[in-house]
Simulated scan of single mutants.
Amino acid sequence: MRGLSLQAAPGIDWADVADWWAAWGTPISIVLIVIGAFLAYWIVKVVIGRVVHEVVTGVKRRADVADTEALSHSPLAQVRIVQRTRAMGSVLNTILAWVIAVFAAILVLGALGVNPGSLVALAGFLGAAAGVGAQGVIRDFLNGLFMVFEDQLGIGDVVDLGEASGVVESVGIRVTQVRDVNGTLWYVRNGEIVRVGNKSQGWARVLLDQAVPYDADVDAVEQRLLDVATRMSEEAEWTSRIIDKPETWGIESVSAEAVVLRLVVKTRASAKDDVARELRRRVKAGLDDLGVTLPSLQKVVVQGLDDTAKGRA
């Protein structure tokens, strides 16, 4: 039956078709492989993008907010879900792009007539070369994976990476992009990151070291600082940002010109700077009402304990 169907197709010279395929089959196969690789990557990218979009949309819907920035007013876990999902989506896009590229390269080599044994030998050679000459790239790759999957940082986090600090704009498989407060975009190799200070996870502390004249009533000033911070924490605008009762930690240092008192307020990580600025303004007004004249900063060096020296949770 198969022979009859071939004879029933008039005008087709199968010998010419075979010759044409012998001449052009390999280039056509390579082109089809490349097109297929690009199509596969496009499909993967669309699927990952759709999943990330659905996760972010679902979180925003549950938080009843219109944009991602407003999630800072919702529970921290929801913010972390958004940041981590976007970071993982970026990393997965890069990983799958490399996987598809390697697979397409193997198919192209197969179309060119390279036998499987040679492909295995080539893979071994490339592996040895990678082990010797691409150790940095492999270290970047592995460290980037661990940072994302361990949730050390995510897009939108404020981080300190040692040489660079600022807001994370992109987490790639090899490089993390951080924009600092001056607007400079830093490209930090993942393998060079030995520590990550994440200022967007959990909570933060506002430490206000206030210098007052040596002859001032320390107890009255300390009580005024606490009253100012407590009233602020009870206002509706700041209730969601300040997560614990303000405290005073007493005298941090004493000099001939001034006594330094420390006021401490525990806040959400994303609200620390806003709380600190408003608190300084209110403390200044509170001390003015108390009639306290602040000493000159040219004479006083405020040297309290380091942020972590107290060791308080």
Rank of each mutant, 00 (worst) to 15 (best):
G3F: 10
L4A: 14
S5H: 10
D13L: 02
W14M: 05
A15P: 07
W20S: 10
W20L: 10
A22H: 08
A23H: 09
S29N: 13
I30G: 03
L32H: 02
V34A: 14
I35P: 01
F38M: 13
F38G: 02
L39Y: 05
A40Q: 01
K45L: 02
V46K: 11
I48E: 00
V51Y: 00
V51I: 01
V51F: 01
V52N: 02
V52E: 03
V52D: 01
E54A: 15
V55Q: 02
G58Y: 06
V59R: 09
R62Q: 13
A63Q: 09
A66C: 07
E69K: 05
E69I: 15
A70V: 14
L71Y: 03
S72C: 05
H73A: 15
L76V: 15
R80A: 06
R80I: 03
Q83A: 15
Q83R: 14
S90R: 00
L92N: 01
T94P: 03
T94L: 07
T94Y: 08
A97I: 06
A104F: 00
A104R: 00
A104L: 00
L107E: 04
L107S: 04
A111L: 04
A111Q: 02
L112Y: 06
A121K: 09
A123D: 04
A123M: 11
A123Q: 06
L126N: 06
G127A: 14
A128F: 09
A129W: 12
A129V: 15
V132Y: 09
G133K: 09
G136I: 08
G136R: 13
D140L: 05
L142P: 08
F146Y: 07
M147L: 15
Q152Y: 12
Q152V: 08
Q152S: 12
L153K: 07
E163R: 10
S165F: 12
V167K: 02
S170K: 14
S170T: 14
G172F: 12
G172Y: 11
R174P: 09
Q177I: 14
V181D: 06
G183E: 10
T184S: 11
T184I: 14
T184Y: 13
L185D: 09
V188G: 04
E192L: 08
I193T: 07
V194C: 05
V194L: 11
V196W: 07
V196N: 11
S200K: 06
G202R: 10
L207D: 13
Q210D: 04
V212N: 00
P213W: 01
D217R: 04
D219W: 11
L225T: 02
L226Y: 11
V228K: 04
V228C: 00
M232K: 02
E235T: 15
E235K: 12
W238Q: 03
T239H: 13
R241E: 07
I242W: 05
G250M: 05
V254D: 01
A256W: 03
E257I: 09
R262N: 05
L263E: 08
A269S: 15
R277Y: 09
L279D: 07
L279C: 06
R280F: 08
R281L: 13
R282A: 00
R282K: 01
K284P: 07
A285N: 13
A285R: 13
D288R: 12
D289G: 08
D289Q: 13
L290S: 02
L294P: 13
L297H: 06
Q298D: 14
Q298G: 10
K299C: 10
Q303M: 15
Q303V: 15
G304S: 12
L305D: 15
D306Q: 10
K310F: 14
K310I: 12
G311H: 08
